[in-house]
Each structure stands twice: as C-alpha cells, then as structure tokens.
Simulated scan of single mutants.
Amino acid sequence: MDLTVVAYVIYLLISVALTVWVARTLSRNGRVFLADVLHGNEKLADAVNHLLVVGFYLVNLGFVTLYLRNSDGVVDARGLFEALSVKLGVVLLVLGVMHLGNVYVLNKIRRRGLMEREQTPPVAPQGWTGPATGPWAAPAPKA
C-alpha cells in the first residue's frame, strides 16, 4: 500500500477522533455555562448548545477534509511522520482557535447579562422622597 494513503487514513482517523472528543467535551461542559449566559433557560441552553456543536462539527470536519490533500508524496516512514505531524498540528491549532473563539463570544454575552442584572434594582422603586429641609430636619452634625 502507498504510504501517502496510509498517511491519509491515519490523519483522518486521528483528526475525526480529536474533533469528536473536543466537541463532546465542549458540549458537556459548555451546557452549564450556556445556562448561566441565558439566565437559567435550560431548553434554550440545550438548543444553543446543540447548534454550536453542529456548527463546530461542520467547520472542523470541513477543514479536515479540505486539508487532507498532500502536495508531496510520502515515500518513507520519516516522511509519513512529518506529514502527519504538520497536518495534525494545524488541525489542533484550528480546534484550539475555534474553542477560544466560542469561549470569548460566550463570555462577552455572559458579561453583558451580568451588567444588565446589576443595573436592575432588586426591588421596584416605591416612590421618591426629597431631602429633608426646614425646622423638622435633623440638625447638622457638629464638627
């Protein structure tokens, strides 16, 4: 069997396995984060989580298949390892960038939600009372 084909098979197996592992990890651990971002709406958090995982699979598996082609043929074991290391390294970098991008965007959304919650008073205002003036006001403290 041609070593280029062996390199392709190994690359696809490892890349797909890494993509599935990262997607499952992000899905499982990101659900809690999404529930917080979406103010406890569990159904919406599950739906957004599922959509993010599908998008993650599409982008990463699309990249993996587009990046499959090797312009130089693999002729020996050393070339096989070199080709695999470059390809898998790039795939890992893309997975990492995708992960950091997702976390960055979700953190921005979460911070915005926290700021909105802090601006909302815990109790609705009951009315307005002006400052006390006149003879019934408390005397000013002595210095």
Rank of each mutant, 00 (worst) to 15 (best):
M115W: 02
G101N: 13
D36Y: 00
M1S: 09
L18V: 03
K142E: 07
G101W: 11
Y11M: 01
K87M: 13
F33R: 15
V75G: 04
G96R: 04
V20E: 02
Y67W: 11
G134D: 09
A140K: 13
N70K: 07
V5D: 13
G127I: 04
L88P: 06
V91R: 06
S27L: 06
M115F: 11
L61C: 08
V53N: 14
G130L: 08
V54R: 10
V94I: 09
L44G: 03
A7L: 08
G113C: 12
F56C: 09
L84R: 07
V59S: 08
N60Y: 01
A7H: 02
L61W: 03
H39T: 15
A45K: 04
A47L: 09
M1W: 11
E82S: 14
P125K: 07
V97D: 03
L100H: 12
A132L: 05
P122W: 00
V16E: 08
D36A: 02
T25F: 10
T25N: 13
E82A: 14
A132T: 04
S85Y: 13
N102M: 15
L68Q: 07
T129F: 02
R117V: 13
T120I: 14
L68T: 01
A124L: 05
G134N: 06
L52S: 09
L114R: 15
H50Y: 12
G73M: 11
Y57R: 08
L61Q: 07
Y57D: 01
G79E: 06
L58H: 00
S85A: 09
A138M: 10
W136M: 10
E82D: 14
